[in-house]
């Protein structure tokens, strides 16, 4: 697995079916099967399967509730779906021997195996897509919760000022109580503009950091496993496999927790955030 890009197994029209796409479909299938079984077996007195499902879903719900509070019902579906999808995807690449099935390819006198299945999170397409969904969902939620004006004023801090000008009553005051205050009140709008710009940039950085973090971790893990297996195939790779299991779990948690954090930050109005920071003594 030398290339960053997923290998195309076959094409449907213009759509390249890569090994990560096949993996995505399998992960989807697994999750759908899970949903099907959970949905079918729900009863008042839970069976083993329902108990496990309740433990996982209920536990994650309480975790979300403890962080998100009254926004739980909005954030929870994204949080848990990101978590489950990424977790299953990460671990699906760790099934021993899964990437030994593939097309044998002669390349420069060396034989390569192009596996049919490769963890979908080791494909930047997938992680980027997840990050984009995370970003879009966050911003949609922010718009819905805060309203357009409050939402825009985060990125364009002088938005309230523009509105007040449009209404014909510009809200602008200079603090004349002292020379330092005067200078501050003249310069602070520029600072706010700069902060707004930073906020805007940070949104794009979020996408990049989310997607590359996940992609890098999982891709690196696969490379490590392949290399280690190449050195000595028995027992030796086991510690690395355990490590990758942990990494897969942690990365799934990191992605979903960060998404949750972004959602909470972007759905909290400026004033409330100030009050919170004041009351907590920050």
């Amino acid at each position: 697995m030398a290339s960053f890009a997923p290998e195309v197994i076959f094409q449907i029209g213009r759509f390249p079916v890569t090994n990560t796409v096949i993996n995505t479909i399998l992960v989807d299938g697994f999750l759908l099967m899970l949903a099907f079984f959970v949905n079918r077996n729900i009863s008042k007195i839970p069976g083993k399967f329902q108990l496990i499902a309740e433990y996982v879903i209920g536990g994650l719900y309480r975790l979300t509730e403890s962080i998100a509070g009254d926004k739980t019902s909005r954030i929870f579906p994204f949080f848990i779906t990101f978590f489950l999808f990424i977790l299953i995807a990460n671990w699906s690449g760790l099934i021993p021997g899964i990437n030994t099935f593939g097309i044998i390819e002669q390349h420069g006198g060396k034989t390569h195996i192009i596996p049919f299945i490769r963890a979908t999170t080791s494909d930047l397409n997938t992680t980027l897509a997840l990050a984009v969904v995370s970003l879009l969902a966050t911003h949609t939620m922010s718009l819905r919760v805060l309203g357009l004006s409050e939402y825009l004023s985060r990125f364009i801090p002088f938005f309230p000022f523009i509105i007040s000008v449009l209404k014909g009553k510009p809200k602008f005051s200079l603090d004349m109580s002292g020379p330092i205050n005067l200078v501050l009140s003249i310069f602070s709008p520029f600072v706010f503009v700069f902060v707004g710009l930073l906020e805007l940039i940070s949104e794009f950085v979020k996408v990049i950091s989310l997607s590359f973090r996940l992609f890098g971790n999982i891709f690196a893990g696969e490379v490590v496993l392949e290399t280690v297996s190449g050195i000595f195939a028995f027992i030796f790779p086991l510690p690395f496999l355990v490590l990758e299991l942990v990494v897969g779990f942690v990365q799934a948690l990191v992605f979903s927790m960060l998404t949750m954090a972004f959602m909470i930050i972007l759905t909290t109005p400026h004033k409330e955030a100030e009050e919170v920071s004041h009351s907590s003594g920050v």
Partner: peptide
């Protein structure tokens, strides 16, 4: 194409799981 496919795929999974797994549980 892959990017859009993955976005759509995730949204579908999100909807189905929300409707048939999280909610009933």
């Amino acid at each position: 194409l892959l990017l859009i496919a993955q976005v759509v795929n995730f949204l579908i999974i999100l909807f189905i799981l929300k409707r048939f797994m999280y909610k009933p549980i």
